[in-house]
């Protein structure tokens, strides 16, 4: 029987992997604490308020995680300018028409499960890249609305940069509502993201899941030779 020879490709450099896990952890922590802040648990207690601070603690964790969230997204944006080809902006931002035709190919092959040739990529496929672009936009929305509400409680210049936000929406109320709805969009994203990682990993056996730990993905030797001969298009990196 013919066996596939695989070539190891270093796709995710350490800043990408570091960002991924810290970002994921932040979303988890922010989601849980944020949900609790929106709808606190009904706790009946005889203890005096002076002996309890769980809600204040939940808020503190939320705010601390928010700073880390902001820091890592800025770091990742920097790395999108200096990192390797799989980390670059071109993977996420559709600037050329070909990006869309590749998205179409991914939709036909992976979503609609049609018998069409696969767009063999080691980095993000075009659709995934675009989805991370929207995730980045969602992140901005959460950062702006979140820090917009937080600015008023802070004396530091950084959150103060966002103090104009609530005025834009005619008050804190709408800002809060957008921030709250954004949490659910993250939840939807997580469901799809996790499923697709599992799907690709077991469907293709190229190390999709472990790549975010080791940084390596695997490419069939013949695909590799092919790409080497033809040259790889710059966007989206493949």
């Amino acid at each position: 029987m013919k066996t596939t020879r695989l070539r190891r490709v270093y796709v995710w450099e350490w800043p990408v992997r570091f960002f991924h896990w810290i970002f994921a952890l932040c979303i988890l922590v922010l989601g849980i604490t944020g949900y609790l802040i929106g709808d606190p648990l009904p706790i009946q207690s005889d203890a005096e308020a002076s002996h309890r601070f769980w809600f204040g603690t939940a808020r503190f964790i939320h705010f601390a995680a928010a700073y880390i969230f902001l820091a890592v997204i800025l770091m990742r944006m920097y790395w999108a300018s200096v990192g390797n080809k799989y980390a670059r902006w071109a993977n996420f931002v559709p600037t050329r028409l070909r990006f869309f035709s590749r998205i179409g190919q991914v939709i036909r092959h992976d979503i609609l499960l049609m018998k069409v040739p696969e767009d063999t990529v080691v980095g993000h496929n075009a659709l995934a890249g675009l989805s991370y672009f929207f995730l980045m936009l969602l992140t901005f929305v959460m950062v702006f609305t979140g820090f917009g509400m937080y600015a008023q409680m802070s004396t530091w210049w950084l959150p103060k940069l966002f103090s104009w936000m609530p005025g834009l929406f005619g008050g804190d109320y709408l800002v809060r509502e957008i921030h709250h709805a954004g949490m659910w969009l993250f939840a939807v994203f997580i469901v799809i993201h996790l499923y697709l990682v599992f799907y690709h990993d077991q469907q293709e056996g190229r190390g999709e899941a472990s790549s975010m730990i080791s940084g390596y993905k695997f490419m069939e030797e013949e695909v590799f030779e092919n790409k080497k001969a033809v040259g790889e298009p710059a966007e989206p990196a493949a």
Binding site: I43, A49, W54, G56, A58, Q152
Partner: peptide, 19 residues
């Protein structure tokens, strides 16, 4: 410049999670 919430005398109950 301040929220009613941030100058509320019931604020300690909020921070304690007592609602």
């Amino acid at each position: 410049s301040k929220r009613v919430h941030d100058s509320c005398y019931r604020r300690p109950f909020y921070d304690a999670g007592l609602f």
